[in-house]
Amino acid sequence: SEIVVAMYDFQATEAHDLRLERGQEYIILEKNDLHWWRARDKYGSEGYIPSNYVTGKK
């Protein structure tokens, strides 16, 4: 599975969105859409994140 790191904070506005915290790692579950990826955080929460807010883990 692909691990990404959040470059920016993202506040979830929709129920299906996942909040991003800058510097935290997330697991990508689905990339069915170019701009919104389904991800899981370290607490096990899942939701959609803006793909341009994250970068591949170095």
Rank of each mutant, 00 (worst) to 15 (best):
S1F: 15
S1T: 13
S1C: 15
S1L: 15
E2W: 14
E2P: 08
E2T: 09
E2V: 11
E2A: 09
E2D: 11
E2Y: 13
I3A: 06
I3R: 09
I3Q: 05
I3D: 02
I3E: 04
V4L: 06
V4Q: 03
V4S: 03
V4Y: 11
V4H: 05
V5C: 12
V5S: 04
V5E: 06
V5A: 02
V5I: 14
V5T: 09
V5P: 00
A6P: 01
A6M: 02
A6V: 03
A6D: 02
A6S: 05
M7T: 07
M7P: 01
M7V: 11
Y8G: 05
D9N: 10
D9L: 04
D9G: 04
F10W: 15
F10E: 01
Q11A: 13
Q11K: 11
Q11Y: 14
Q11M: 14
Q11V: 14
A12R: 06
A12I: 07
A12F: 04
A12E: 08
A12Y: 04
T13N: 11
T13Y: 10
T13H: 11
T13A: 10
T13E: 10
T13M: 12
T13R: 13
E14H: 14
E14I: 08
E14R: 15
A15G: 10
A15M: 12
A15I: 12
A15F: 09
A15V: 12
A15S: 11
A15P: 15
H16T: 14
H16I: 08
H16Y: 11
H16N: 13
D17A: 14
D17V: 14
D17S: 13
D17R: 15
L18E: 01
L18H: 01
L18S: 00
L18D: 00
R19E: 10
R19M: 10
R19W: 07
L20N: 01
L20T: 02
E21P: 00
E21T: 10
E21D: 09
E21K: 08
E21L: 08
E21H: 08
E21M: 08
E21Y: 09
R22S: 09
R22F: 08
R22V: 12
R22N: 05
R22A: 14
R22C: 12
G23A: 04
G23Y: 07
G23V: 02
Q24D: 07
Q24T: 04
E25V: 09
E25G: 04
E25Q: 09
E25C: 12
E25P: 07
E25A: 08
Y26S: 00
Y26C: 03
Y26D: 00
Y26I: 03
Y26N: 00
Y26W: 01
I27E: 11
I27C: 10
I27T: 11
I27N: 04
I27H: 08
I28M: 02
I28R: 01
I28K: 00
L29W: 04
L29T: 05
L29G: 00
L29Q: 03
L29R: 01
E30K: 04
E30M: 08
E30S: 10
E30Q: 08
E30T: 06
E30F: 06
E30A: 09
E30L: 06
K31Q: 07
K31C: 10
K31W: 06
N32P: 14
N32E: 11
N32R: 11
N32D: 11
N32L: 13
N32M: 13
N32G: 12
D33Q: 08
D33L: 07
D33P: 03
D33N: 12
D33S: 11
D33I: 05
D33Y: 09
D33V: 05
L34P: 15
L34G: 12
L34N: 13
L34Q: 12
H35G: 11
H35K: 11
H35D: 10
H35P: 05
H35N: 11
W36I: 07
W36C: 12
W36S: 05
W36F: 08
W37T: 01
W37L: 04
W37C: 05
W37R: 02
R38D: 02
R38P: 02
R38Q: 06
A39D: 02
A39Q: 02
A39L: 04
A39R: 01
A39W: 03
R40W: 03
R40L: 08
R40I: 08
R40Y: 03
R40F: 04
R40N: 02
R40K: 10
R40M: 11
D41N: 07
D41C: 04
D41G: 01
D41E: 01
D41F: 01
D41L: 02
K42D: 03
K42P: 07
K42F: 07
K42A: 09
K42I: 10
Y43N: 11
Y43G: 07
Y43W: 11
Y43I: 05
G44E: 02
G44P: 01
G44F: 03
G44C: 06
G44M: 06
G44D: 04
S45A: 14
S45T: 12
S45R: 15
S45D: 13
S45L: 12
E46V: 10
E46H: 04
E46P: 00
E46G: 01
E46M: 06
E46C: 06
G47V: 02
G47C: 06
G47T: 04
G47E: 01
G47M: 00
G47L: 01
Y48L: 12
Y48A: 04
I49P: 01
I49Y: 02
I49G: 02
I49W: 02
P50E: 03
P50V: 03
P50H: 05
P50R: 05
P50S: 03
S51A: 13
S51W: 05
S51V: 09
S51L: 04
S51E: 05
S51Y: 06
N52Q: 12
N52P: 06
N52L: 10
Y53A: 11
Y53Q: 06
Y53H: 10
V54K: 01
V54C: 04
V54S: 00
T55S: 11
T55K: 11
T55N: 08
T55F: 08
T55I: 13
T55V: 13
G56L: 14
G56S: 14
G56D: 13
G56H: 15
G56Q: 14
K57A: 12
K57H: 11
K57I: 14
K57C: 13
K58Y: 13
K58H: 14
K58Q: 13
K58C: 14
K58I: 14
K58P: 13
K58L: 14
